[in-house]
Structures are given as structure tokens and as C-alpha cells.
Amino acid sequence: MTSMKRWKAVWLVLLGAASYGILSTLVKLGYQNGFTPAEITGSQNLFGFIMLWLICLPQLRKMKGITFGTVLKLMFSGAFTGLTGYFYYLSLQVLDASFAVLLLFQFTWMGMLLGWLLDKKAPNRFQWLAMIFVLIGTLLSSGVLSGSWEGVHLGGVVLGLLAAVCYTLFICFSGRVATQFPPLVRSTWVVSGAMTIVLILMPPQFLWNGSLDKGLWFWACLMSLFGLILPSYFLAKGAPFIETGLASVLGAVELPVVIVCSALLLQERQGPLQWMGIIIIIIGIFVSEKKTGGSLAKVSVNPKG
């Protein structure tokens, strides 16, 4: 793989992670408008499912040759992104948002360890250094250092860590399952899996309780775009060409995006520690791309589908 294609893959994964960052602000705005986690999560996944299948209709012919087993693998992968939102939104009910985000971002080191296990390739010194930068930056920008640790809900901590585990597995599988098919086709089945697991766990009462008429449809469309369609597509197109550990590190850009969007759209004031954390995370992202040989040489990655 040429360095140009590799950098394109890196930027696609960054865009996917940034979409998740925008989603966090949209979810908060949805809550401010009186909607519940079940309504937010369920409508987001259902609308994303419908929108992506409508977009994919012209490419149905490209699904020829896709086996039932492959469909199950893609939907299984999508179930992890659905579970990520499910556990994360539940953790927000009993934890401060800053602490919940910190727990979610444990996927950075989880992804590195999983990549080491699956790829049989130990991280180089730059990737280890990048992980240190990302963890320190995450801690600073989460706001935990300026808050209180008293009264932390143990169940919420478990839910936040489960969200991190599910996000790690989603990033991993998105780069390994059915990579021979077009990204849009893969994303459609991934979103189908996310919708299925979420609606099983959270029955779609919003379809008949009047929430859609009260404006839920608007937030559902925005959240499905930034929470399912764009990140699923970008990750499906970029993740197969970079290592699992690197994809997890790049995913950390979500937190700076959350901070910036919250400041611009929610008027949440950020202190020096938060902005320092953003800078440190960005440094970590660039450090992760350095090679021990001193150049961006070709990287051959053969994901297992």
C-alpha cells in the first residue's frame, strides 16, 4: 500500500470518529428537548436503518454473491456499535458526562491490546508513546481532574467500561469482516445489526407514544446520520487498510470534537485542562503515525473476512 492510500485511510477513520463526536452534542440537545435514552437510541437506529437502505437500493446488484453467513457476520459486527450506544447512554443516567466519556475512551488501550492479540504484532515504541499521550489527554479533557470522585455509581462504571469494550470490538470487526464488498453494502448490514440489537433491548415505544410528532423525528435523522451512516461508511472504507491498534488510537479524535462542539453548540465552558488535553491527544494521533524506520513505508495488511 502506498503512503498516499494509507493517509487516505487514516483520514477516513478520523472522519468516522469525528462523526461520533458530533453525535454526543446532538444527543445532549435531544435530552434537553425532553426525550428519553430509549427514544433517542431507538429512533436513531431505526431511522439510520431506513435511510441507509434507501441509499443502498441502487447498489443492490452488488449484493449478489454475498452469503447468509457473511450477512450474519456483518450484522454481528453492527451489534457492537448498537451496544456501545446502549451501554453509554445508560451510564450517563448515573454518572457525570465527563466521567462516562473517560470510561468510554478506555477503548484506546483495549484496542491496542486486541490488535496485538489478533495481528500478532507488538506495538512499536511510537504507538506506545501515542497511547500514553492519548490516555493523559483523555484524562485532562474529560474534566475528571477538576471534579469529585465521591459518590461514583459502581453500576455506571461497569456500563461505561462495557461501552468501551463494545466500541473496541466494533472497530476491530469493521476492518476484518467482508472487506471484499463495497463499503456502502457492508455499512447497510452493519446498521441493520445495530438496529436489531437496540430494538430488542429497547422496544420502539416512540412509534406510538407521540414522541415523533413532538420533534423526535428531526433529532433521529441527525443522529442517525452522524451516529450510524457516516461513521459506519468511513470506518468500513478506511479501517481495513490500517492496523487495529492504530484505528483505535485515531478514534480518540472523538473527544476533542465533543469538547469543541459542546463549546460551540451547548455553550459549555472549557477550562485550560480541557484544552490542554485536546492538544495532547492531537499530538498522540500524529505520534502514532511515526515509524521506527523513520518513514511511511508501505504497510501490508490483510484483514480476515
Rank of each mutant, 00 (worst) to 15 (best):
M131E: 02
S3A: 09
F241H: 12
G251V: 04
S187Y: 00
G143N: 04
L29Q: 01
L52W: 01
A122M: 13
L129H: 02
F286I: 14
L54A: 12
G16W: 07
G238A: 08
V157T: 10
V253N: 04
F133W: 01
T196V: 15
Q180R: 11
G294Q: 00
Q205H: 08
T108H: 04
D213K: 05
L57D: 15
W189D: 08
I282P: 00
L29F: 05
L140I: 14
G227K: 08
F107I: 11
F241A: 04
F49S: 02
G42P: 05
I229F: 05
V198A: 03
F76E: 01
L296C: 08
S232E: 10
M131Y: 02
K304Q: 12
L139A: 09
Q267D: 09
L207W: 06
Q32D: 15
I40V: 15
A252Y: 02
Q205G: 05
A9H: 06
V257I: 13
Y31M: 06
S43M: 14
K62H: 09
K5W: 07
T168A: 04
A97S: 10
A236E: 02
L154P: 11
P240H: 11
L26I: 12
I285A: 02
N209G: 13
I278F: 06
L139T: 10
E289A: 11
P58F: 14
V165H: 02
G30Q: 01
S142F: 12
M4L: 05
A97T: 12
P58I: 11
G143W: 02
Y88M: 08
V158I: 14
V299A: 06
V94F: 07
T244W: 03
L103Y: 05
Y167L: 08
L26T: 05
S141W: 05
A178W: 12
V287P: 00
F170H: 04
V27S: 03
P58E: 06
S91E: 12
A164M: 14
N45I: 03
L199F: 05
R125L: 15
L255M: 13
P303K: 15
A18F: 05
V27R: 00
G147Y: 10
S146W: 07
T188C: 10
C261F: 15
S211T: 07
S248V: 11
V301C: 05
L129C: 03
S19M: 09
P240R: 12
V101S: 06
R61E: 13
V101W: 04
G30V: 03
A236Y: 00
D213F: 04
V185T: 08
G293P: 00
L46A: 13
K28E: 14
T108N: 14
G21Y: 04
N45G: 13
V249C: 08
W53G: 03
L72C: 10
G65D: 03
Y167T: 03
L162S: 10
L95R: 00
V198H: 01
V185A: 06
Y233W: 11
T25W: 10
